[in-house]
């Protein structure tokens, strides 16, 4: 049933507020996505303010207190302590800092580059499209983890190198996605109309096309954030990412495996921490996808 009729009494702000309110309602109707959002927001806040809220901020680095090593989870150390007596909760919070920085850098570099290339390819078509997409395909053929391994072993295995390695491949997926979206949209009449009105190419790409491709990109970025966290943790786990004594989540798990199964918390607690963050991103992404799917149907 179409209810696209407009009311005279409906002025600007109420109409827009209604739109937001409706999206909000649809979003909050899905408990999973709300939980996902809460997880992501809570972890982000905790990570940002880690120096202030962590119980033992000094434990984040090279700290040793052998007297307190291998402590089981207790009130004093909610997640226990590791082999040199550092509080695992503190280190998990600082680990989140590193993980989220990785997400921000990888997506912050990968998404704009990929989206720009993809939109250009999709809108321009022809040989521009062919060139951009073949280059993208070449990069796609390399698994990020393997390239990161190669780069990390060629250079110094540090967090920065790992970030660069992951980011240098991550844009490909966005290029492909954006290209598909842009190609399907650029035949739409509103693009033609803008062209005839004399709009510049950059106007059409970023003001006309991009807003209409944003929803799937946002969903992908959210779901991807979880994968970036996992990739970073995997690199750290095999010793090519965050180097001790920095509290990388993967590094902590790797270190903890030496003490399984007796002192299980040293490995398991950071593992659970990774799991919760990734799950949070996934739930949020699924929720957003459902939200935008409804929008498309309407």
């Amino acid at each position: 049933m179409s209810t696209e009729t407009s009311r005279l009494d409906q002025f600007v702000s109420p109409a827009r507020r209604e739109l937001w309110y409706r999206s909000y309602q649809r979003f909050t109707n899905q408990p999973m996505s709300v939980i996902g959002l809460i997880i992501v927001v809570t972890i982000t806040i905790a990570a940002v303010f880690a120096p202030y809220i962590a119980p033992y901020p000094e434990h984040a680095g090279t700290f040793t207190d052998f007297a307190n090593a291998f402590q089981q989870p207790s009130l004093e150390h909610p997640l226990g302590t590791d082999d040199v007596g550092r509080d695992i909760l503190t280190r998990v919070l600082f680990g989140y800092r590193i993980a989220l920085t990785l997400v921000a850098v990888v997506l912050g570099l990968g998404v704009p580059v990929g989206v720009t290339l993809g939109l250009t390819a999709g809108y321009a078509g022809g040989w521009i499209d062919t060139i951009i997409m073949r280059v993208t395909d070449t990069f796609l053929a390399l698994p990020p983890l393997v390239l990161a391994l190669a780069i990390a072993s060629a250079f110094e295995p540090t967090l920065e190198v790992a970030m660069f390695a992951i980011a240098s491949l991550w844009w490909t997926w966005y290029a492909r996605l954006a290209r598909g979206l842009a190609a399907s949209q650029s035949d739409e009449e509103y693009i033609q109309a803008a062209k005839i009105s004399g709009a510049s190419t950059s106007h059409i790409l970023f003001r006309e096309l991009l807003p209409n491709c944003l929803s799937p990109l946002l969903v992908k970025a959210t779901l991807d954030a979880g994968i970036v966290v996992l990739t970073g943790a995997s690199l750290s786990f095999i010793g090519l990412g965050v180097q001790p004594p920095k509290p990388g989540l993967g590094t902590m798990v790797a270190n903890g495996t030496n003490f399984l199964p007796t002192d299980w918390w040293i490995a398991i607690m950071p593992g659970i921490a990774i799991f919760i963050l990734v799950m949070g991103f996934n739930m949020l992404g699924d929720g957003l996808r459902d939200l935008f799917d409804v929008e498309v149907e309407q």
Partner: peptide
């Protein structure tokens, strides 16, 4: 001026 008044207006603007 296009035929379909809906599809030639950008829905997000």
């Amino acid at each position: 001026v296009f035929q379909d008044p809906t599809s030639c207006l950008n829905p997000r603007r």
